[in-house]
């Protein structure tokens, strides 16, 4: 840890940068594949050191806000798509039911929607060091929807005893097209460009996943209760976007004043 601090302190980077470190961690808590329990004490420790350090370097910066809330779906949930599996049915099953609209509870909490802020932020170069696993398991990508930040890595793994061909594309352009034999090596690649990436398997065409990459840390994926949480948001005017792979976009313009705590309830359609 001292090494990190010396790197951060010596060129005296913009203050938000250092605070953003915690910020990233807190967002990951909302996602399923965030670094969880083992890292929590570290995050707390880091926060403590940071407060201490900010006093020394004169980084005191306040006025950051929190946006949290829930995304819900009202109405009849469309039935799942049933696909007859022609390849590797002995492993994938003869039929696969695909339900991208995951709704929980009587309130209609919508899982796997990505909530993000669009706009210009007063700082750039957010630190990002985390990787996002894309796991081929039971002939499906787990997780199906991933939010990530540029500078982070994706790690493609295969847990199935059959060949998978993970093909990640940004638009038409191939980002990564890799074969994975059973027990094959995982493949790690850094995300450099923001945008919507599609994840497909050329062998099992029914397999589908989504990877949405932002060049800032202000995004969150809704959990099974439909909750999202955006922390450490600097004041400013933004557009809040909710994206779901089949339901599309919900947008709302926000004017964030300093040190506010905003709660939103967003409902599809």
């Amino acid at each position: 840890m001292p090494g990190i601090w010396s790197i951060m302190c010596s060129p005296c980077p913009p203050p938000i940068n250092s605070v953003g470190d915690i910020n990233v961690g807190s967002i990951w808590k909302a996602t399923r594949y965030a670094p969880r329990t083992p890292f929590a004490p570290l995050v707390v420790l880091a926060g403590f050191l940071l407060v201490l350090l900010s006093g020394i370097c004169g980084w005191a910066e306040d006025g950051l806000s929190t946006i949290s809330g829930t995304v819900r779906f009202s109405g009849a949930v469309p039935p799942p798509t049933i696909v007859n599996v022609l390849k590797d049915p002995e492993h994938c099953g003869v039929q696969v039911a695909i339900q991208p609209v995951k709704v929980h509870g009587p309130a209609g909490a919508l899982e796997s929607a990505i909530v993000s802020l669009e706009g210009t932020f007063p700082m750039k170069n957010f630190p990002a060091n985390s990787d996002h696993p894309v796991v081929n398991a039971q002939c499906a990508f787990t997780p199906r929807v991933i939010g990530a930040q540029t500078g982070q890595d994706v790690e493609v793994r295969n847990q199935d005893p059959i060949l998978h061909n993970t093909h990640i594309k940004l638009g038409k352009r191939t980002f990564l097209n890799v074969a994975q034999v059973p027990n094959g090596r995982p493949i790690i690649k850094m995300l450099k460009q923001p945008g919507h990436y599609s994840i497909k398997c050329d062998k099992h065409t029914f397999m589908e996943g989504h990877l949405v990459v932002f060049n800032h840390p202000f995004f969150s994926i809704t959990d099974s209760s439909g909750n999202f949480h955006l922390a450490q948001v600097p004041p400013g005017t933004y557009q809040l976007q909710v994206w779901h792979e089949t339901l599309g976009y919900l947008t709302q313009n926000l004017n964030i004043v300093a040190q506010s705590d905003l709660r939103l309830d967003l409902v599809y359609p």
Binding site: N165, R173, T174, N177, V178, A179, V181, G184
Partner: peptide, 16 residues
């Protein structure tokens, strides 16, 4: 290297 833009994947990691 695979052939990008086609289904032919890269076997670099598998043959490493």
């Amino acid at each position: 290297t695979g052939l990008d833009g086609t289904p032919m994947p890269s076997y670099e990691a598998q043959l490493q």
